[in-house]
Amino acid sequence: MTTVYDIPPDVLIEKVAGELEKLDAIETPEWANFAKTGVHKQMPPKDEKWWFKRAASILRRVYVDGPVGVQRLRSFYGGKQDRGSKPYQFRRGSGSVTRKALQQLEAAGFVENTKDGRVVSPAGRAFIDGVAHKAKESVVETIPGLAKY
């Protein structure tokens, strides 16, 4: 069976985001069109579907790194802040974006909250592995060497 590790992350996240858009449990909050994804950013995302891509990316990150918490995911989605004439400095990503996306993934049944942190539920594992399997069929022709897996 194809898993998350067999597909390039950018391809998988696009496919999972497309599947998450079809679900009722994952929806873009009203404030998402105006919010930045972190203090290190100067503008909000231009892509209208960025919320689904971030939720898909968080689901993949929990699958690969789990159990994880919001703080650890904030560090993953952080970046360098431009401080003018002073040197750039690392800043974590938005906690609210990460937390709300995780809460929506929990409501959809894809993520579970344990005492050690959030982990992918069996339903979430089946969902993302199923998307990975479908994605592999469409990607095999474009990426040489992937067919051997």
Results as ranks from 00 to 15, higher is better:
K53A: 10
Y5K: 04
A35P: 04
P144H: 03
S75G: 13
L105M: 07
N33L: 11
I26K: 12
G124I: 10
D82M: 12
F90Y: 13
L20R: 02
F127I: 02
N33T: 15
E14G: 10
Q89N: 09
S121F: 08
M43T: 14
Y63T: 13
G130C: 00
K22W: 04
D129P: 05
L102V: 07
L59D: 00
R54N: 04
E30Y: 12
K148A: 00
S75E: 12
V11L: 12
D6K: 05
R91I: 06
E137N: 05
T2L: 00
Q42D: 15
P8R: 02
G66W: 10
P29W: 10
A132V: 00
D129S: 12
D6R: 03
V131S: 00
K115V: 02
T114W: 07
K148H: 01
M43Q: 14
S57I: 00
Q71P: 04
I7N: 00
G79Q: 05
R61G: 02
R118F: 15
T142I: 13
A123V: 09
T37I: 14
G109E: 07
A147P: 04
F90H: 04
L146M: 13
R61S: 10
G69Q: 04
E27D: 14
G124T: 09
K148E: 07
T114K: 09
R61N: 08
A35L: 09
I128S: 01
V97A: 11
Y149T: 11
N33A: 15
G69E: 05
E112P: 02
I58H: 01
P29A: 15
K22S: 10
P87W: 06
K148F: 01
G145P: 00
A107G: 08
A123G: 05
P44S: 04
A35T: 12
G84D: 10
R60V: 02
L20D: 09
R74I: 07
S94A: 06
P29D: 13
K36V: 11
D65L: 12
E106M: 15
T37H: 07
V139M: 08
W51N: 01
V97G: 06
E141V: 06
H40A: 06
V70A: 11
V139N: 01
K100F: 10
D47C: 04
T2F: 00
A101K: 03
K22A: 14
I58C: 02
L23H: 03
R91T: 11
K80W: 11
N113Y: 06
V64E: 13
E48N: 09
V111Q: 07
S121E: 08
F90E: 12
G124A: 06
R92K: 15
P67K: 03
W50C: 01
